[in-house]
Every structure is written in structure tokens, then in C-alpha cells.
């Protein structure tokens, strides 16, 4: 046993920690998911004395809940748009900053800053920037790009765009640093060898840069999407889901059903839907991107 580097099986201390860890994880991840699944089949409401088992009533109601379908559409649209925008911007920014001298390293430090700030603070700063009398409208009107200030947070479509803009700004800090790291991990020898073989810049990009950066992109895209499906703080501060519920993501809708409407049962059913959507998206996109890496 000792020669195979296995500790004595009877050693209780580590085993106890393992049990504790698995127990904690079960208590705060596994049990809540099971509880949600169970409660989604009830009409639990803290203001009502009794809870009844209602079968799939909540799920039936979800199929004709237009607020839910709006929020789900917004969430999916936001997730897709911001993931694409933040990763495209991150790749471009990373290519621009892909040098190692001091000034470029300082710029890299600065580029990650939005990731360090809490979503609450980010959203307050942007609420100031995007305000009717805010600095963005100042710039736009004084330069004559628009003649009237734009209500960035006041109309449904613009508010949706603004939430996406702020979320993309935060995420770009992350996607830039990940892609920069991927770019800088490519051995210079590969490019030298390609040059010797007569490969042009485009060919070098196609056959070296692109495939070598792909694993970084996989991570970056996956984490971007998970972050967007989870997003709560930025929206809560920037628009609180308004105007007219246009920026109410599914995460916000769950909170509203649970804590404003006190409909625990229904909120649990919506939570199960968001969980299923997140799982499907995360698994399929990771699978898709992984396959592309192998293909190249």
C-alpha cells in the first residue's frame, strides 16, 4: 500500500474532511436544486396558510406567461449579443495589446479593471454616464452627432441595448486578458518556422494564431455565457428590469416572483427552467467549440 503512494485507508482525518466537503456541497447546491424541483410542483406562498401539491400546474402556467417568455427572450438575446460582442472586442483588444514592453503591460493591467469592480459600482457609474444629462449625451450633442439627448435608459429598446453595452464592457476586461494570455503562449519559433516555409501573414494567422488561440476562446466564450445567464447586479442597479419590464432577465424574474409576488412555487418552476436552459447552453456550446478545436 505505502509503495503505491496511497495513504493508509483507515486514516480518518482526510476522510472526515471529504465527507464534510461533500456534505456542504450537497447542502448548498444539490439539496437546493432538489428542493426547487419539488417546490415547483406546489403552490407554496408564505402569505397563505397551506401549501398544496399542484402537479405541473406551474409549468402549464409558464407556457402562457408572456412576462416569462419576454424575460427569457431578453436573457437569451442579451447572452448571445454580449458574448459575441465581448469576445470580438476582447480578441481585437488582445491583438492590439499583444506586446511585452512596459507600456503594453500597463495597458493590460488597465484593461482588466472593469472585472475588479463590483457590478453595483459599475452600474452606478454607467447610470451617470448614460443619464439624460449625462456625459455621453453631452458629447453626442456638443459634437453634433445628435441634436437631442438620447434616453439611453428610458425606452425599452435603448435600455436593452444599454444593459448589453455595460455588460459587454465588464466582460471585455476578462476576454481581453484571456486572449492575450493565449496569444502570448504561442511559441515565436512557430512563426519563424512558418516564415521559413514561406507562409504569409494571412496563412500564419490561419494555421498558427487561430488554432493556438482556440482553447482560450472556448474558455472565454463559455464563461461569458455563464456570466450572462447569471447576471443580476448590473441590471438590478442600472434599470431594475425596466422600463416596462423590458430588461427583466430571467434571474430578475425569479427574484420578482419569489420576493415581490411571494409565489415561491411558481418562482421555483421558473428557476428550474433557467437551470435547464443554462445546462443545455453550457453543454452544447462547450461541445461545439471543443469539436472545432480538434478539427483544426
Amino acid at each position: 500500500m505505502t509503495t503505491r503512494a496511497h495513504p493508509r485507508r483507515g486514516d480518518p482525518a482526510l476522510g472526515a474532511i471529504a465527507v464534510l466537503t461533500l456534505g456542504l456541497y450537497a447542502l448548498f447546491i444539490v439539496v437546493p436544486v432538489i428542493m426547487s424541483a419539488w417546490k415547483s410542483l406546489t403552490d407554496e406562498n408564505p402569505l397563505k396558510p397551506q401549501t398544496h401539491f399542484v402537479g405541473f400546474d406551474n409549468y402549464t402556467e409558464m407556457t402562457h406567461d408572456s412576462a416569462l417568455s419576454d424575460s427569457l427572450t431578453f436573457t437569451l438575446l442579451l447572452t448571445a449579443a454580449v458574448t459575441i460582442a465581448a469576445n470580438a472586442a476582447g480578441i481585437g483588444f488582445a491583438i492590439l495589446l499583444n506586446k511585452t514592453s512596459l507600456s503594453y503591460r500597463m495597458m493590460r493591467t488597465v484593461a482588466f479593471l472593469p472585472q475588479v469592480l463590483s457590478g453595483v459600482i459599475v452600474a452606478f457609474v454607467w447610470r451617470y454616464i448614460l443619464a439624460q444629462d449625462g456625459i455621453l449625451n453631452d458629447i453626442l450633442t456638443t459634437t453634433g452627432i445628435t441634436d437631442k439627448p438620447i434616453t439611453w435608459l428610458g425606452t425599452p429598446h435603448l435600455a436593452m441595448f444599454s444593459v448589453g453595452l455595460v455588460a459587454a464592457w465588464v466582460l471585455t476586461g476578462f476576454t481581453t486578458v484571456v486572449h492575450l494570455a493565449a496569444l502570448q503562449s504561442i511559441p515565436v519559433e512557430l512563426y519563424q518556422a512558418a516564415k521559413v516555409d514561406g507562409a504569409g501573414r494571412r496563412q500564419q494567422f490561419r494555421h498558427i494564431t487561430f488554432p493556438m488561440v482556440a482553447p482560450g476562446t472556448t474558455i472565454s466564450v463559455t464563461i461569458s455565457m455563464i456570466t450572462m445567464l447569471k447576471l443580476y447586479d448590473i441590471i438590478a442597479v442600472l434599470t431594475s428590469g425596466g422600463p416596462a419590464d423590458s430588461t427583466q432577465s430571467t434571474a430578475l424574474y425569479i427574484i420578482k416572483c419569489a420576493f415581490t409576488d411571494n409565489r415561491f412555487g411558481y418562482a421555483s418552476a421558473v428557476a428550474m427552467l433557467l437551470l435547464a436552459v443554462s445546462a443545455v447552453i453550457a453543454l452544447s456550446v462547450t461541445g461545439l467549440l471543443r469539436r472545432r478545436e480538434v478539427d483544426l
Binding site: L27, V33, S36
Partner: peptide, 21 residues
């Protein structure tokens, strides 16, 4: 794999049962 799945779950999904626990 089980721990990885936990990283993907939106906190809003877990919030209500966590408070109950």
C-alpha cells in the same frame, strides 16, 4: 463533473431554497 455543474448554476436558482435551508 458534479462540482463543475455547480459552477454553472445561476445563483438566482439556488437563492430561495438556500434561504429556506
Amino acid at each position: 463533473a458534479v462540482f463543475g455543474a455547480g459552477l454553472m448554476i445561476p445563483p438566482a436558482v439556488l437563492l430561495l431554497p438556500t434561504i429556506r435551508i
